[in-house]
């Protein structure tokens, strides 16, 4: 098994151990190098406005938050913990009724204790994404990983 495959497997186990991520059916598609892709199937129980058949904004937010966290955890500096400090979500359009949602997040900058992410959510349709997010996470880096980074 390659390092990348091992990293995906560890991340998958990590996400599957999160009770809420399991409850809404989140699945890691890829993760590594500060980048993550997570999908979530459509589920009637997650609908926010039945008149329009659209998922609740909050569950899309939960997906983007989880995906952002996974991107931070996979950053090459090797964070050992990550917690959301703030998250801003722009809802560009309603997700297509019945469609699975795919979130993609990138951790584009890290300092010693803060990681910055941006993310998008799509529903398989052409055009703009369903939603976009930017966020900041607090993180801690394992002392050994930090030393290695500093020595390089």
């Amino acid at each position: 098994m390659s390092d990348a495959q091992l990293q995906i497997q560890i991340a998958r186990q990590f996400i599957e151990a999160i009770p809420f991520a399991r409850a809404v059916g989140m699945t890691i598609e890829s993760v590594g190098g500060g980048h993550a892709v997570i999908t979530m199937p459509f589920d009637e129980r997650l609908v926010g406005d039945p008149r329009r058949g659209v998922l609740h904004g909050g569950v899309i937010s939960a997906l983007m938050d989880t995906c952002g966290g996974a991107a931070v955890m996979s950053h090459p500096v090797g964070p050992s913990t990550a917690a959301t400090l703030d998250l801003r979500i722009d809802y560009m359009r309603a997700a297509k009724a019945g469609a699975a949602i795919r979130a993609e997040a990138e951790c584009y900058h890290v300092t010693r204790s803060v990681a910055f992410i941006r993310a998008t959510a799509t529903d398989g349709e052409d055009g703009p994404p369903v939603a976009a997010a930017t966020g900041a996470f607090t993180m801690t880096v394992r002392p050994s990983a930090e030393k290695k980074e500093g020595a390089a």
Binding site: I18, S61, A62
Partner: peptide, 23 residues
Amino acid sequence: DMLIGDPMVPALHGGVTASFLET
């Protein structure tokens, strides 16, 4: 239990908090 996001702490999932506030 379903609302947990970090089983180690344990803490509510940030997305659950976001969903609760938006609702």
